[in-house]
C-alpha cells in the first residue's frame, strides 16, 4: 500500500479512489478464479494470475503476490495446479479484498 499511500498523500478520498479501482478488477476476477476448473487446460487460470499479480504487488500483498507468481510460472512451464492450491490463492485474495473493503468504510 506504500505507493498508494504516497500518491494519495494523506488525501483519504484519493486513497479510496485507488482502492476502488483495484477492487473493480480484483472482485470479478476472484469470482472467475473460484469458478475455474483445474481439470481443464489451465491457460485461463494462468491469465487471471498474471493479470492480478501486478495489482496485488502494487497493493503491497507480497506473500499473495509470491504465491500467484509461483503458480503462474508453474502453469507456464507446462505444470498443473490442483484444487487445493487454487483454493489457497482464492482464500488469500478474499482476505485481501476484505481488508481493502474495510479501508473504504
Amino acid at each position: 500500500m506504500e505507493i498508494i499511500d504516497r500518491l494519495s498523500a494523506g488525501d483519504p478520498e484519493k486513497k479510496k479512489y485507488y482502492i476502488r479501482l483495484f477492487l473493480d478488477t480484483l472482485e470479478p476476477e476472484l469470482d472467475n478464479l473460484k469458478a475455474a476448473n483445474v481439470a481443464l487446460p489451465q491457460e485461463p487460470i494462468r491469465a487471471i494470475l498474471h493479470k492480478l499479480k501486478s495489482q496485488v504487488q502494487t497493493i503491497g500483498a507480497a506473500e499473495t503476490h509470491a504465491l500467484m507468481a509461483q503458480q503462474e510460472q508453474h502453469i507456464k512451464e507446462g505444470g498443473q495446479i490442483d484444487q487445493s492450491q487454487l483454493d489457497e490463492t482464492c482464500a488469500k485474495l478474499s482476505t485481501l479484498i476484505e481488508n481493502l473493503q474495510e479501508l473504504l468504510k
Binding site: 485507488y18 493479470k51 501486478s54
Partner: peptide
C-alpha cells in the same frame, strides 16, 4: 497496458 488500475496509478505517479 491492459492493467487498468496499475496504469492509472503509474500515470498519477509520473504526473507527480
Amino acid at each position: 497496458d491492459d492493467d487498468i488500475p496499475n496504469t492509472e496509478v503509474l500515470r498519477d505517479f509520473l504526473i507527480r
